[in-house]
Simulated assay, not measured.
Amino acid sequence: MDSEKDKKRAIYCLTSKGAELGYRIKQLIGGDLFVYEKIKAEFSCLRFKRLTSLISEVFHAYREHIFITAMGIAVRGISPYIGSKEADPAVVVIDQNGRYCVSVLSGHLGGANELCKRIAELIKATPVITTATDTEGISSVELLAKKRGMHIENLSALKDVSFAMIEKEPVQLFDPDNVFPLDYPKIIKVSDETEWRKDIPGVWVSWKKTEALNNKLIVVPKSLIVGIGCNRGTKKEEIRDAVQSVFRSFGLNVKAIGLIATIDKKRDEKGILEFADEMDVAVKFFSSEELKCISVPNPSKTAEKHVRTKSVCEASAIAAVKMGQIVVPKQKFKNVTIAVALKKAH
């Protein structure tokens, strides 16, 4: 197969013309090219005997699927494996002559619409996109969240918000940090939680925990940096329990964690690294020289004695946000200290 960079994309071809087009697309954007075994091909490709059997094996292994087949063949092939908006990969179908490129599945979150437009432009095809927000020229809430690296807490509420926007009805927006520039003319901006109306659908953008409603789409920005200090050998589970305890106590959403920060002496601290991997966030390390210059609310003589700085968790969280602020000062546990800082909105 191709390099790891291209593993995300699979291209399926059933005819000679389709295989030629598939090879062309592979050359343009990369991917693994699967060609029906009876087709003669003078280029490198992977062979298959039955497309349905192949799809059952690889559907969840790729993030993007390009079928150069009839629409019905593609739909019948993928239908047993379609799950949800959150998990489904992008699916695009192209006719063998390359005239039409159709976005079929996971247009926004999976990226099928963007993939469709990209391929269409490259092969001079007509892109066919049927998602209502796109056909109406309305901003896609989930696509905006995806582009900004934000987490949608309750996708089930998306249908009410999207329906209201398509029907040109009012939509509420609670976005106190101004990080979600939703372009829609009938936005009702809500500046205080008490102003929220349960009878009007809307988008709630916050790093704090909030009550979920059927028509209240919760979008969580990755605005929080967790500063961590710990004793050598502290397990991932203990670190996770400490972080979750802090977030529960202070009403914060763990999905808002965008970065973990700590001292560089912890570069090989397995518990921190494993916790970061579990949360799918990066770890930023700071030297004791960098940290000792930072003023913190709760300096520690013990920390200064062992790592030559009066603070690890608070100082590293502050260092990571630069112009941000501490929202949770140091919280002490048996083997862990936790502080949380908020990135300043740009």
Rank of each mutant, 00 (worst) to 15 (best):
S3M: 03
K5C: 06
R9H: 08
Y12I: 13
K17I: 12
G18W: 03
G18T: 05
A19W: 02
Q27N: 15
L33F: 02
E37N: 14
K38E: 11
A41I: 08
S44H: 09
C45Q: 02
L46M: 09
A61E: 15
E64C: 10
E64G: 09
T69D: 01
M71H: 05
Y81P: 14
I82G: 02
S84L: 05
A90M: 11
V92P: 12
Q96D: 14
G98A: 10
R99I: 12
Y100C: 08
G107S: 05
C116T: 15
A125V: 06
A132W: 02
A132V: 12
T133H: 01
S139M: 09
S140N: 00
E142H: 02
L144C: 04
A145Q: 06
K147M: 12
A157L: 11
K168Q: 13
V171S: 10
P176V: 12
V179I: 09
F180M: 06
D183S: 13
I187K: 11
K189T: 04
K189F: 11
D192R: 15
K198P: 05
D199C: 08
P201F: 03
W204E: 01
V205L: 02
K209M: 08
T210Y: 05
L217A: 05
V220G: 01
I239Y: 02
I239D: 02
Q244R: 13
F250L: 01
G251K: 08
I257M: 13
G258Q: 09
G258A: 01
I263T: 07
I263Q: 09
D264L: 12
K265E: 12
K266S: 07
I272E: 02
F275K: 11
D277K: 15
V281W: 01
L291T: 04
I294L: 08
P297K: 07
N298Y: 01
K305D: 00
K305E: 09
R308P: 00
E314R: 13
E314D: 06
A319C: 11
A320N: 07
V321Q: 06
M323K: 15
